[in-house]
Amino acid sequence: MIDNMKPSLVFLKETHCQFLKARYFWLSLSYNVVNIEEVVGHNDDLWVLASNDIDFSISVISSCHQVITHCLSKNNAQWFCSAIYATHVPSTRDLLWSHLENMRSSIGVL
């Protein structure tokens, strides 16, 4: 699918392996790491990878074990994107919602 579609960004969750074990695979497809959030046990992992030939800039605004928020920029336009892996634990998921609400407030300032 990666070879056929050639996405600029790839968001992976629940990878069940360490990125170091898959690193060469992604490098061979010409993708670089934007951000990796690995959790012990590799059940709540979030990987964000970008193609080597993207025509925009991407920067990490915020990162924690349930969400990675990015700013994508091209020319004078900006777009914010969050890769989310919400936990099944309600009390921890509440922390995610609080984090997203705070991000919404802070992004309005950027």
Rank of each mutant, 00 (worst) to 15 (best):
R23W: 07
V33S: 02
Y31P: 02
W47I: 01
H16A: 03
F56W: 13
K21W: 02
L12W: 14
D53V: 00
F56C: 03
I54V: 13
N32C: 05
N52Q: 10
Y24S: 09
V39L: 05
Y24D: 15
Q66F: 08
W47K: 01
F25C: 03
S28K: 14
L9K: 08
N52S: 11
F25A: 05
F56D: 07
I58V: 15
S63M: 05
L27M: 09
L12G: 05
F56H: 10
G41S: 09
C17W: 01
W26S: 07
E38I: 03
V67W: 13
G41I: 07
I54G: 04
V34C: 02
D53Q: 03
T15K: 02
K21E: 13
D53T: 14
I36F: 00
N32Q: 06
D44K: 08
V10Y: 08
L27Y: 06
D53N: 15
G41P: 10
S57W: 03
R23H: 10
L9M: 14
I54H: 10
A50G: 05
E14S: 09
I36N: 02
L12A: 12
D45I: 03
K13V: 15
C64R: 09
N35G: 04
V48Q: 04
T15H: 04
V39R: 10
V48R: 05
S30Y: 13
L29H: 15
N32R: 08
L49N: 02
Y24C: 03
S51D: 14
V60L: 05
L20G: 06
H65V: 11
E38Q: 13
A22L: 10
L9W: 09
K13D: 00
C17I: 13
S30M: 06
V60Y: 04
I58R: 00
L29M: 14
V34L: 11
D53S: 15
S59C: 08
F56R: 01
S30T: 06
T15V: 13
W26Q: 00
Y31V: 02
L27W: 11
I61C: 12
S63R: 11
I36G: 02
